[in-house]
Measured scan of single mutants.
Amino acid sequence: VTVHVNRYTYHFDNPEEAEKFAREMAKRLNMTVEIHGNTLKVE
Rank of each mutant, 00 (worst) to 15 (best):
G37R: 03
E16L: 10
E17A: 11
T9W: 10
T32M: 09
E17G: 03
I35P: 03
A18W: 02
E16W: 12
L40D: 05
E34Q: 14
A18H: 00
R28A: 10
I35G: 04
H4E: 10
E24M: 13
K20Y: 09
E16F: 11
K27V: 09
E43M: 15
E34C: 13
L40N: 05
V5G: 03
V33W: 04
K41A: 09
R28N: 08
K41Q: 09
E19S: 06
L29R: 04
K27F: 06
N14T: 11
N30V: 03
R23W: 14
A18L: 02
E19L: 14
L40M: 13
N30Q: 07
M25V: 13
N14E: 08
R23T: 09
N14W: 04
L29V: 03
R23S: 08
K27Q: 11
M31R: 04
A26W: 01
V3L: 02
V42S: 04
K41G: 06
T2E: 07
V42D: 06
M31D: 02
R28M: 12
F12R: 00
R7V: 06
E19K: 08
A18Y: 01
H11T: 09
F12P: 00
V5H: 04
R28D: 06
K41E: 08
M25D: 00
H36A: 08
Y8A: 12
T39L: 11
T9R: 09
M25I: 14
A18C: 02
L29D: 04
E17I: 07
V42R: 02
A18R: 00
R23Y: 14
T32N: 09
E17W: 05
G37D: 08
L29C: 15
E43H: 13
R28I: 12
M31Q: 04
E19A: 08
D13H: 07
G37M: 04
P15H: 14
A18M: 01
T39P: 03
T2K: 08
N30M: 06
Y8D: 13
V5L: 09
F21I: 01
K20R: 12
M25Y: 04
T9E: 11
A22S: 02
A22D: 00
E43D: 11
E17T: 08
A18S: 01
E34G: 07
K27S: 10
H11C: 15
K20S: 11
E43Q: 14
A22T: 01
A18Q: 00
N38P: 07
L29Y: 13
R7D: 14
T2R: 07
L40A: 05
K27H: 10
M31L: 12
E17F: 06
N30I: 03
R28L: 13
H11A: 04
R7S: 13
L29M: 08
M31C: 12
F21N: 00
E19I: 13
G37K: 07
E16V: 12
N30E: 05
Y8R: 14
N6R: 07
T32F: 08
H36D: 12
A18N: 00
V1G: 02
A26E: 04
G37L: 06
V3I: 03
T9C: 13
N30D: 07
E19M: 15
V3K: 01
F21G: 00
T9Q: 12
R7E: 14
A26M: 04
K41V: 15
V3S: 01
E17S: 08
K20P: 01
V5E: 02
P15I: 15
L40T: 06
N6H: 13
V42W: 03
N14K: 07
A22P: 00
V42C: 08
H36G: 04
V3E: 01
L40G: 06
F12Q: 00
A22N: 00
H11V: 10
R7N: 15
Y8M: 13
F12V: 00
R28E: 07
R7F: 12
E43F: 15
V42I: 09
T39V: 14
E24A: 12
T39I: 14
R28T: 06
D13Y: 06
R23D: 07
T9N: 06
H4G: 02
E16H: 09
N30L: 04
I35Y: 13
I35N: 05
T32E: 06
N6M: 11
M31S: 10
R23M: 11
E43I: 15
V5F: 10
T39Q: 12
D13S: 10
T9A: 10
N6E: 12
V1T: 09
P15D: 05
H4Y: 04
H4P: 01
Y10M: 03
N30P: 01
M31V: 10
L29A: 04
E34H: 15
L29G: 06
E34V: 15
M25Q: 05
A26Y: 02
T9K: 11
H36P: 01
D13N: 10
A18V: 01
V33L: 08
R23G: 05
H4R: 10
H11K: 06
Y10K: 04
E19G: 05
A26I: 03
M25K: 02
T32S: 10
E43V: 15
R7K: 13
E34K: 15
H36V: 13
H4Q: 12
Y10V: 06
H11D: 04
L40I: 15
M31N: 03
Y10G: 00
E24P: 00
E19F: 14
E19P: 00
T2Y: 10
E17D: 13
N6F: 11
V33I: 09
H36T: 10
E16C: 10
A22K: 01
D13A: 10
F12Y: 02
E43T: 15
E16Q: 11
F12S: 00
Y8G: 06
E17P: 02
F21H: 01
V3R: 01
V3P: 01
I35E: 03
N38Y: 02
L29W: 07
H11G: 02
P15Q: 13
T32G: 05
R28F: 08
D13I: 08
L29F: 12
N14S: 11
T39H: 13
T32L: 08
A22R: 01
F21L: 01
H11W: 14
A22F: 02
P15C: 15
T39F: 09
E16P: 05
V3W: 00
M31W: 05
R7A: 12
K20A: 12
L40H: 06
E17H: 07
E16M: 11
E34D: 06
K27Y: 06
V3M: 01
T9L: 13
E24S: 10
T39M: 13
N38T: 06
V5M: 06
K41H: 15
Y8P: 01
H36Q: 11
E24K: 12
M25S: 03
H36W: 09
Y10R: 03
N30F: 04
E43P: 04
T32Y: 08
E34P: 01
R7P: 05
T2D: 10
F21V: 02
T32V: 14
N6C: 15
H11E: 07
V42F: 03
T39D: 11
F12I: 00
N6Q: 09
G37C: 07
D13G: 06
R7T: 10
G37S: 03
T9S: 09
N6D: 13
T39N: 11
E34N: 14
V3C: 02
G37H: 05
E19V: 09
I35W: 14
K41L: 14
M25T: 08
H11Y: 14
V3Y: 00
E19N: 07
M31A: 14
T39K: 09
E24D: 11
N6P: 03
T32A: 08
F12G: 00
G37I: 05
T9Y: 11
D13R: 05
Y10Q: 02
T32W: 05
V5R: 02
R23E: 09
N30T: 03
N6G: 15
A26L: 03
F12W: 02
N14R: 05
M31G: 15
Y8N: 12
H36R: 11
R23V: 09
N14Y: 05
R28V: 09
E17L: 11
E19Y: 15
L29E: 04
N30K: 08
P15E: 08
V5P: 02
Y8I: 13
E34R: 15
N30C: 13
L40S: 06
V5I: 13
R7W: 11
R23Q: 10
R23H: 12
V33N: 01
P15L: 15
A26V: 02
V33H: 01
V33T: 02
E34I: 15
H4A: 05
K20V: 09
A22M: 03
V42K: 03
H11S: 05
A26C: 04
A22E: 01
P15K: 14
V33K: 00
N6T: 06
I35L: 06
F21P: 00
L29H: 10
A18E: 00
H36S: 11
F21Y: 03
R28H: 09
L40K: 04
K27N: 10
N14G: 06
E43N: 12
V5W: 07
V3G: 01
A22G: 02
G37W: 03
R28Q: 10
Y10P: 01
K27P: 01
H36E: 10
V33F: 04
F12T: 00
T2I: 12
E19T: 07
K41D: 07
V1R: 05
T2M: 07
T2W: 12
M31P: 01
L29T: 05
K27G: 07
K41R: 14
Y10F: 13
T32P: 04
A18D: 00
